[in-house]
Design a protein around this nucleic acid. Sequence first.
DNA 1: CGGCTGATCGTG
DNA 2: ACGATCAGCCGA
Length: 214
Amino acid sequence: MPERKRLEREFFTRDGITVARELLGKILVHETPLGIVRGILTEVESYMGETDKGAHTYGGRRTARTEPMYHQGGTSYVYLIYGMYSCMNIAAMTEGIPQAVLLRSVIPADEDSGRIMRQLRLEEMNRKQLKRNREPYTPENCPGSLDRHLSDGPGKLCTAMHITRADNDIDMVESEVFYVTEGKAVTPSQIHAGKRIGIDYAEEAADYLWRFYL
DNA sequence: CGGCTGATCGTG
DNA sequence: ACGATCAGCCGA
């Protein structure tokens, strides 16, 4: 199979809504010690700078944590949420304009990727089993929810693709191991829009249709 | 399938 | 103190 073309700077230096919609169907690639993991992006959300009450950068909050959102389009922004999960974003626009796209869901792009995602998610579930003093799951006896919900949420996506805060503030246009490539064709009619999830505190911004999914 | 809840820790 | 969440548990 021919190598897919990587997305260049021009793709990411557009507004956060355009970049979000255009990312659907593209392939997120992470080269890890376990092998290359490829996920087809199926759900994303836009976070639109200093005026978006749902965004970490609302009101111009520029701190050590939010700094990557202010960097040029194509920069990764990975942060810890609820003390135990990572969330992965890609910055849009140019330096100084803190728009970003939260990556909410992928499906494995090939069999190898599916195997790696399953292994990483299983390891994560077993760390919790251990703490609860329960028997670890095996690839055979694990609950069906593992496959049904392999990487269909921002935290699960990061676990399945081995994305941690070590991957924060990476330029995904230049990186050799963490980048996005062309994927499958998506037509406008395949793109659905809904309210963003988990930002009830954002008042009217909680109702904006800035979540996009296939 | 939908609703509820505890877990857990870096950040400001 | 507060989350851009998740899994497990419950009832329908």
